[in-house]
């Protein structure tokens, strides 16, 4: 059942079960939806609804218990650990709620990290790191450590980092969850720009304000999709 390659991703009957204290927890139940190229989707739902599980699967951090996940034309469920790592390195841009920067490294070193794992550190790509830092407005903080930056600045570093390998597919896990409203607007503006560059973005949030900025909202409840609306 090959998916349409023009889709950025296609999710078919995706389920994920966990064994927790001897009981099977069905975190995700038969979730299906298509993600056209250039889409901007927000995934919403109460805690425990399966948002994070879904994002982990989409981010190739985890494998589904059943169902299929096609990324471009490739079946993620069939990948081994190395192939998953490679996919994460080359094709997916990650932005996290808690930024997930390496505290021992400087801004520019943090932005460079994905390069090491995509196996291509060229002078050109290193220059790209500087350009990205400039793009997110941090050219004056290149030598700073994450602890010396504000939350908004840290999230910008994380966004710059996610763009290093120029992924067409971006995942954001509550990227504005720890930020005040002004910074939230700035980050959302940045994401909107990225979407305008034909990058597909899937964003998990529980804030309706944030979801409103996206093109499409999917609501999860108890591991199932309860609504899928395009604005």
């Amino acid at each position: 059942m090959q998916a349409d390659p023009s889709l950025a991703a296609s999710i078919q009957n995706l389920s994920k079960n966990y064994a927790l204290a001897g009981e099977t927890v069905r975190a995700l139940r038969d979730v299906s939806f298509d993600v056209p190229s250039g889409d901007y989707i927000s995934i919403m739902g109460p805690s425990g609804s399966g948002k994070s599980t879904l994002l982990n699967l989409l981010g190739c951090l985890d494998q589904p218990s059943s169902g299929n996940y096609w990324l471009g034309g490739d079946d993620v469920a069939a990948m081994n650990d190395d192939e998953l790592s490679e996919t994460r390195a080359l094709r997916i841009g990650f932005v996290f709620q808690s930024y997930n920067l390496l505290s021992a490294l400087t801004v520019v070193e943090n932005i460079e990290v994905p390069l090491y794992y995509s196996g291509r550190i060229t002078p050109k790509l290193r220059k790209r790191c500087l350009d990205l830092a400039k793009r997110v407005g941090l050219e004056s903080r290149l030598g700073h450590r994450p602890a010396q930056l504000s939350g908004g600045q840290q999230q910008r570093v994380a966004i710059a980092r996610s763009l290093v390998n120029d992924p067409r597919f971006m995942l954001a896990d509550e990227p504005t969850g720890n930020l005040d409203s002004k910074t939230t607007d700035e980050i959302l503006e940045l994401l909107r720009e990225l979407n305008e560059e034909e990058r597909t973005i899937i964003l998990v949030t529980h804030e309706p304000d944030v979801a409103e900025q996206t093109k499409r909202s999917i609501f999860l409840h108890d591991g199932s999709i309860v609504s899928d609306e395009r604005r």
Binding site: D81, D82, S85, E86, R88, A89, F94, L101
Partner: peptide, 12 residues
């Protein structure tokens, strides 16, 4: 965890 999420393989 961060490095793995950013694409580090086990052998890295």
């Amino acid at each position: 965890g961060i490095r793995r999420a950013l694409g580090a393989k086990r052998r890295d």
